[in-house]
Design a protein around this nucleic acid. Structure first.
Lengths: 264, 264
DNA sequence: GTCCTCACAG
DNA sequence: CTGTGAGGAC
């Protein structure tokens, strides 16, 4: 049994206390973090090693973005893709070496895409779509048991957002993003593990904006974080769960952590 | 008996907890704060009123400088001088109305003066000297029992600094500053209350730089904060003390608070 | 070292 | 609303 977690932490240095808390309470074998917002030498490597997460693959940069995969199971850094080719740190891939031998875990932070869902007036939106297209071409060639997790910054289903109609023109839930993500999905036949367990049309959110004074008030959430398995691996997926209560922890991230167990 | 305190707080919003602590532990009748670093509407008026300091005279500005006098004794705002005539908030004067009736308390934050002690290459140094000269002209006309307190940004005596020789060329202890401050003193015959109680050449510091990793290590302090009384009022000065331990409180200011009691 | 503001990003 | 960074001040 191997358990994997993913969490957009929105600054790992500032939120080390809640990362430690999560690791102590849930003890996943592997934790994939996005938006670590630090350079590799600034990553709290020792603190996480002290909790047993001695195997670490960190792809950081100054101030923004950045991903890290930390593990109690030996792993080997496998790849770092720069699908935008602009030097941003948005991906790290690892291969498990001990239990779960041979499984590949791709940790990705898809660009948010700015405010305006129109690439002619908002370059960031175009970059987001391009990022997904390049990821799609890459997925075509995936030939090993692979789990891709992270903040995709897209909520594909109606039940992935608190108000489908109202969000159709809001970046993260526009038809073009949903279609582009669907093409990525089809390119490899990924299984959306979250939605295997909490099935459409049940409510499933992983993110609530900081901007609302009370995130719970109208439950205006979106499912931006995902765990998708390649067809072979998907068959071995077991339990899947969330820690929604983490949105209420001290100095919370705006995202919550997701977990999946694999029978490996 | 009326007790007065002065403290350069270096952001009153960030350090509200230690301001509250001081008021609870020492309960001065009046507290004069410098470097509140906020506008008047941002001042934590309610929190201090809740502790009984309902009478407040605030002269603030955005981001920098700013002074405030809060009191358990009724007071009337008396004056706001802009001795530099540049709009900076560096002074507020009040008159006590209840106990201590008629006493005037001038709360002042003298410009730091930059790094280079030469007005030809450092305009800030010239502004500091000019500020003091204008304050001197003003002092000439003081005709009521007055206490002037605050961060003068000058350590006049050899025993006011940890190393006289080494600081002779460091802004805050240069001869020209000391001379200029002396002329201010002479203009009204102010009594340096602090030095009436902790007499030269005894060590007396009120400020230790943040830049030293351990402020206590070599005790590299300076006496930048002062409480000076007009001749009539000086006769009624009683106890005078410091809270040097405040330099060790949680998230401390680099200055410590000073206290004087008056038999009024 | 520790503040502040501002710009930028989410 | 909540981060990071840069620049300025002390």
């Amino acid at each position: 049994m191997v358990s994997i977690a993913t969490w957009n932490i929105n600054s790992v240095r500032l939120r080390l206390p809640i990362v430690e808390r999560l690791l102590q309470e849930e003890a996943p074998d592997v934790l994939c973090l996005q938006e670590i917002k630090c350079q590799e030498h600034q990553f709290p490597a020792q603190a996480l090693a002290d909790l047993g997460y001695v195997h670490q693959a960190i792809h950081g940069q100054k101030g923004y973005h950045g991903v890290a995969t930390v593990s109690r199971i030996p792993l080997k850094e496998f790849s770092r893709h720069d699908w935008q080719d602009n030097g941003e740190a948005r991906h790290v891939g690892v291969e498990l070496l001990g239990p779960g031998q041979g499984m590949v875990i791709e940790n990705v932070y898809v660009p948010a895409g700015g405010d305006e869902p129109d690439r002619t007036i908002n370059a960031k939106f175009g970059q987001k779509l391009d990022f997904l297209e390049r990821m799609t071409r890459w997925a075509d060639a995936v030939d090993r048991p692979t789990l891709i997790v992270g903040d995709f910054n897209i909520a594909p289903l109606e039940s992935d957002v608190w108000n489908h109609k109202q969000l159709l023109k809001v970046v993260s839930h526009t038809p073009i993003e949903v279609d582009t993500l669907q093409r990525f999905k089809d390119a490899h036949g990924w299984t959306d593990i979250g939605r295997e367990h909490i099935r459409d049309p049940d409510r499933y959110y992983s993110w609530w904006s900081y901007r609302a004074k009370d995130w719970k008030a109208n439950d205006r959430g979106r499912r931006l974080d995902h765990m998708w398995a390649s067809p072979d691996l998907a068959k071995q997926a077991g339990r899947h769960w969330l820690r929604e209560d983490a949105r209420d922890w001290d100095k919370p991230s705006d995202h919550i952590p997701l977990f999946t167990e694999f029978n490996l």
